[in-house]
């Protein structure tokens, strides 16, 4: 939204920044404490009055060095990236088509199918995991990235399809009707007229699919038990041992696992900022 009026910063804007920062301090405290745990020895944190900032004499980044050295964290991140990108790309294509269909064609059967999709997500994954394992074991696809991608797509698509439907709903049907009168086919209209208008929606849905796939633990640990195929979540879980938890290592790995998604959020920004829909709807 481009506000032409305010070039300079008004006191009100500084006020908003102050409020935002205050909110962030509260909301991001758990992340801050994860960082604290990764740089301060547990002995100093496990007291009745722990320090709230890293003490200069004992804080160190050793945990990161140790994790990077002793664990294949790069490999875990890479595996997670492949699973996440595969899942998100397939999901976004499928759910754009499906969401458009659910939004624009509202027969009883279509709506029932849309409901059934959501319904399929009602069973907890823990109940489905054994049959899912049977499928991929039968197909010889254990320790295969595609197995995890496919099952993540199946788990994600019911949600992303509905999400896309919501975003398509927000686009007036007159726009594409006009395009079709101009002689465009339906798919062409979707691609050339609707998809550009859907950019914030696509970005949102893509991010959503990425987050689900990035955070998946159950499917990854069950279908890719081989350590060379571990994703970052399985890697993080491996810091929890039988007798002890490597807290600083776990938190260091946890912090590192956020970075790719944070980068994704930053890339997402321009898609959200451009209020494309507003301009085009009018025209």
């Amino acid at each position: 939204m481009s506000k032409v009026l305010s070039r300079g910063r008004t006191p009100q804007q500084w006020g908003l920044l102050a409020i935002s920062l205050a909110v962030l301090v509260v909301l991001l405290f758990p992340v801050y404490w994860m960082i604290m745990t990764s740089v301060v020895p547990s002995k100093e944190l496990l007291t009745s009055s722990p320090p709230l900032v890293p003490p200069a004499d004992s804080a160190s980044l050793d945990a990161y060095g140790e994790v990077l050295e002793s664990r294949p964290i790069g490999l875990w991140l890479w595996n997670s990236t492949l699973v996440t990108l595969g899942t998100a790309l397939i999901s976004i294509v499928i759910s754009t088509l499906g969401g458009y269909s659910l939004s624009r064609f509202r027969t009883k059967a279509q709506q029932a199918m849309g409901f059934t999709l959501l319904f399929s997500r009602m069973l907890p994954g823990t109940l489905l995991i054994i049959p899912v394992f049977v499928i991929f074991a039968s197909a010889g696809m254990i320790n295969n990235l595609w197995a995890v991608i496919l099952v993540n797509v199946a788990a994600t698509v019911p949600f992303t399809t509905w999400l896309m439907k919501g975003f398509v709903d927000a686009i007036p049907a007159e726009i594409e009707e006009a395009a079709m009168i101009d002689g465009c086919g339906r798919l062409r209209t979707l691609w050339q007229v609707i998809v550009p208008l859907l950019r914030p929606g696509l970005a949102t849905t893509f991010t959503y699919a990425c987050i689900l796939a990035w955070g998946d633990f159950l499917f990854a640990r069950t279908l890719m038990p081989n350590p060379s195929d571990w994703t970052i979540t399985v890697g993080i879980a491996s810091f929890i041992g039988e007798f002890s938890v490597d807290w600083s290592g776990l938190m260091a790995a946890g912090i590192m696992s956020m970075v790719p998604m944070l980068i994704l959020f930053v890339f997402l920004e321009p898609f959200l900022v451009k209020g494309m829909a507003s301009g085009s709807v009018k025209g």
């Binding site: 054994i130 394992f133 640990r221 879980a237």
Partner: peptide, 19 residues
């Protein structure tokens, strides 16, 4: 290695799935 946290669940899955 299978993480201890989910080791028994993982083996249960495999036995129940016949693999």
């Amino acid at each position: 290695q299978v993480p201890f946290d989910s080791f028994v669940a993982q083996q249960t899955t495999r036995f129940a799935a016949g693999d």
